[in-house]
Amino acid sequence: MWSFFHKLASPKHFYRIAGAWIPWLGGITLLLMVVGLYLGLWVAPPDYQQGDSYRIMFVHVPAAWMSLFIYVFMAVCGGIGLIWNMKMADIMAMTSAPIGASFTFLALVTGSIWGKPMWGTWWVWDARLTSELILLFLYLGYIALQNAIEDPRTAARAGAILAIVGSVNIPIIHYSVEWWNTLHQGPTVTRMDKPAIHSSMLWPLLLMALAFQLYFFTLLLMRARVELLYRERRSRWVRELMGNLQPSPLSNNREVI
């Protein structure tokens, strides 16, 4: 088991193993998503209060879950990269940030669309939407920091610190926004989740959540492979892979001299 992880940490093996996994992960994602959407959009009954408009929940809720999950995932990867100086962990953290930001954005947009028939307006300072907006700011800050630092290793290390500090703050932000919201708006608008959800709605929700999770990992592996090729473009295995063994003139300054 340990040697498997060790292998996964080496760029060359990661590239090969991830390449083998991607079709499977992608296939299962597609299957789960089709089944989940079918159950959610056709089989599940309309809500007695919201009619059919609640069905956007099957996209909104998993997206919101993923937005939180990916930030924590980023912090954990960053921490691993920081402590054990592991290149793959750096790449994982860096490449998951834009995916996480996209999920956050999706959660914001679907939340706003869901809110329109309920509140009669596109945007309400609802606790969940506000938290999600702040999370989007956290993601954008992380991405901005990554872009501002030229050296990829320094960028990864700085990003790791930021992600760890951010994820310590996420529960605090979440709690304080929730508290702020109950003070200012009353409990009328926080109707997005129900304590007792019927199983005909729960199943598609869980399937969709799983599908989103696998979708994230599929996308992550694909992006990580690309990033890896770029960062290792001077190394022998990448040049062999690309069928180009001519020494690149920039690969090492000594060859210029």
Binding site: I134, F137, L138, N169, Y175
Partner: peptide, 10 residues
């Protein structure tokens, strides 16, 4: 500002 402002919200 971008990095720190969200952390100031609580």
């Amino acid at each position: 500002t971008l990095l720190v402002m969200p952390l100031y919200i609580p």
